[in-house]
């Protein structure tokens, strides 16, 4: 109906998003995007000994934006920070069996949200070290 062909996996992650919500005791939170463009993603990470142990998201955006943010929360859990930073937007899109070309920017946003949440974690822990 929207003129887009979403894969069944995108529709599944949109209709039944995994890890949706806030993490009250998050160690890193990243918010990216711009409401003017119609997409805002917020990623919450719980990090213990350099490993991401939990992740949640909240997203204002289309089905692809919701699905990619949900997917990225699933992909990061259990990975070390440096492993998480290796997750590319392409990998997120591939994990969803692909995205329509006009929606690839959603996967870029998901990658940026991840980087922003990790940066926030580093800033917070730098503060603590001092």
């Amino acid at each position: 109906m929207a003129g887009f062909d979403y894969s069944p996996k995108v529709m599944d992650y949109f209709m039944n998003p995994r890890n949706m919500g806030e993490l009250e005791d998050a160690d890193g939170v990243g918010t990216v995007g711009n409401p003017t463009c119609g997409d805002v993603m917020r990623l919450y990470l719980k990090i213990e000994d350099g490993t991401i142990v939990d992740a949640r998201f909240k997203t204002f955006g289309c089905a692809a934006a919701i699905a990619t943010s949900s997917m990225v929360t699933e992909m990061v859990v259990g990975r070390t920070i440096s492993e998480a930073l290796e997750i590319s937007n392409k990998a997120v899109a591939e994990a969803l069996d692909g995205l329509p070309p006009v929606k690839m920017h959603c996967s870029v946003l998901a990658e940026e949200a991840l980087v922003a949440a990790i940066e926030d974690y580093h800033e917070r822990s730098d503060g603590r070290d001092k």
Binding site: A2, M15, G38, C62, A63
Partner: peptide, 17 residues
């Protein structure tokens, strides 16, 4: 606070066009 495409798709899944 919500985006229209998501709303329309969710309604579509509940048989409302």
């Amino acid at each position: 606070f919500v985006e229209g495409e998501g709303l329309a798709l969710m309604l579509d899944a509940q048989a409302i066009a």
